[in-house]
Amino acid sequence: MSGRRLRDWAFWGLCGLAMLGSAAPAVSVLVSVVHQAAPVLDWSLLTRRSNAGGIENAVLGTLWLLLGVLVLAGSIGIGAGVYLAELATGRVARVLRFGSEVLAGMPSIVIGYIGYVTMVVGLHWGYSYLAGVIALSVLVLPYIVKTTEVALRQVPSALREGAVGLGMAHRQVIWRILLPPAAPAVVSGVVVALAISTGELAPLLFTVGFTDSNPSLAPLHQQVPYLTSVTFTDLSLPGARAHATAAAAGAASLAILVLLILLGRALSRRSRLATAQMTL
């Protein structure tokens, strides 16, 4: 075998190893979670609440929280991203971007604690849905802002010029011309934000509490159950059954994650098809 071919093989071999190295943890987590959850894994899990060894209330609570984050962080994050990419100039933009980066680096437990001090105690909201949604939104906002801004900046400037040259108003240029091709990236930013929200425990620990009943629609003064809390609590309980339930809650989080990713792909497919042939 020639030296060149040998180096070629070595290169691809290393690439393969690296791929394996990054995929293996994900696969092993998946397998071990499902394996540990196996003893309790059946559909009744989804119809019993946490006080009866199920996760119905936690699944509903997590989805309910995600919806809140989608609305709050989604709208504010995309709006701020558009503002940074299209309207902010000079110092204002620099200050906002700096703020967003600081926020991105803030430990989630700190966000949870600040949420506790300001909202749960300060505003007398008690452990509540709104406090949790706001804490999670603060946590994931930087991702949405950043991906929206970057996505808009990557739209070829020729499209912007073409639109402006036709006498479109700035608002129309943003909505009709710049956002559609940026949509796949924006959607994936929102999906990442929701995925992070699904797996977070720290911001919720101090803000929403937990309850064995299904989540109420009241935004204030009512505690909300969620999946990561079940995992966290049941793991610290004695007994194989509790541990299996903890694993089942983890598996449910993973399932939500996968669903989110699939949903994001389906949503962004249309605009991706439309922009695939862009050659500008």
Binding site: A158, E161, G162, L166, G167, P180, Q277
Partner: peptide, 26 residues
């Protein structure tokens, strides 16, 4: 002014939309 004074650019820059929509959008 830009509605009354149209512009065509150096490189063709159609929008990533249908032929119909490119003409109809403005």
């Amino acid at each position: 002014i830009r509605r009354r004074v149209g512009m065509v650019f150096q490189r063709p820059n159609p929008f990533p939309k249908s032929i119909y929509d490119n003409v109809a959008i403005a």
